[in-house]
Simulated scan of single mutants.
Amino acid sequence: MDDSPVDAAEVMTEQRALAQLPVVLALAEAGKLRVSAATRKPSAATVKLLAENLPGGDFYASEAISAFAWPLLLQAGGLADGPRMQLTPRGRAALRKDPALTVKLLWERWLKAGIIDEFSRVDGIKGQRASNVLSALRPRRQLAAEGLSLLGTDEWTATDDLFTQMQHEGMDPVIQRSDMRLWKLYIVDPEYGSIGYDGMHDWDVLQGRYVLALFFEYAATLGLIDVRYTSPVGARGDYADRWGGDFLPSLSRYDGLLAVRLTPLGRLCTG
């Protein structure tokens, strides 16, 4: 996993997103983008191409976040379809539209019908593919997205403070389908590292990681939130004292997200 930037970086995402969207649409129109027919996830070549061509680049040099998210967002928004990511009539119309309106559409459609479970990108937590382990995705995603309503446009909110506020407001995007299913999730080892043990399934580790994934990979890519972040390696110590935690440099690629701030575009898109 990439370990840059060493120091905290701040990225103002609104203009970045409004510049990136037309580039992604143009690459799709030119037939340059590919996704898996089975999973609809972008190919490695597509991720590399986007990372090299997105205005402002990706958040990390060697860890795909926006380059992974854009093809999924276009598909969820009905702008592109099929393994070759052909633009739909809506996608071709988006080339001529105000990109801010298209971003609003993409966020609304992602909340209703996002292509993947964002939690699947939290690589350090295994066992997610076992049957009936994870909670229903759409209500969980919408509940997590409500956390944006706690943000202001004039000041940064530390992610840990956001977690505390979300819990206080009852915004609890529970990951597991039932408490018994927690035993199927684990870190490193399915027996000794099971998340079912007391003290292994704190809010920050499960719900918090889901919020980080949704906010960093999708809300920030779309320009809804500015982000202050650092290397994910060692950025959060909330898992390190768990069995197997010392084997992992981070629990997810999103661990370095330190603080967020709503953008004017984010205010428009969240009402």
Rank of each mutant, 00 (worst) to 15 (best):
D255K: 07
S135P: 02
L18N: 05
A51P: 00
D117M: 05
A219S: 14
V260A: 11
L54Q: 10
G170T: 11
D2V: 05
F216W: 04
A8M: 08
L101A: 15
V103N: 02
K126H: 09
T270F: 09
T164S: 15
L212N: 06
V260L: 15
F247N: 08
F247P: 00
R96Y: 06
L212F: 07
S66T: 04
A213H: 06
E217K: 09
I115H: 05
E29R: 13
A136K: 10
D226Y: 09
R181I: 00
G271N: 13
F247Q: 14
Q207V: 10
Y186R: 12
P232H: 04
L33C: 06
A235L: 03
V23G: 00
E52M: 07
T157F: 10
G245T: 01
T270I: 14
F163H: 14
L206S: 08
G208T: 05
P5D: 08
P264F: 07
L72T: 08
D202I: 12
L27Q: 10
V24S: 02
D154F: 03
D161Q: 15
W183M: 07
A94M: 04
S4R: 15
A94Q: 03
T46P: 03
L150R: 05
L79P: 01
E14S: 08
S252K: 05
S250Y: 12
S66A: 15
I195M: 15
L143W: 02
T88I: 07
R96H: 13
D123H: 13
R34D: 06
T263R: 01
I116Y: 07
S252P: 00
G266F: 01
D58L: 08
E108N: 10
G78D: 04
A64Q: 02
A136S: 10
T39I: 06
A38P: 00
V23F: 00
Y254M: 08
Y210W: 11
T221Q: 08
V103G: 04
Y192S: 15
G127S: 09
R228M: 12
V233Y: 01
Q75M: 13
L257A: 09
K97V: 04
A61C: 01
R92A: 14
F215D: 06
S120M: 13
L21M: 02
N132K: 15
Q167N: 05
F119E: 06
V47T: 15
E108H: 10
P190L: 12
W203T: 08
A37H: 04
D246T: 11
F68N: 10
D81T: 14
L248K: 01
Y210P: 04
P139K: 07
V233S: 11
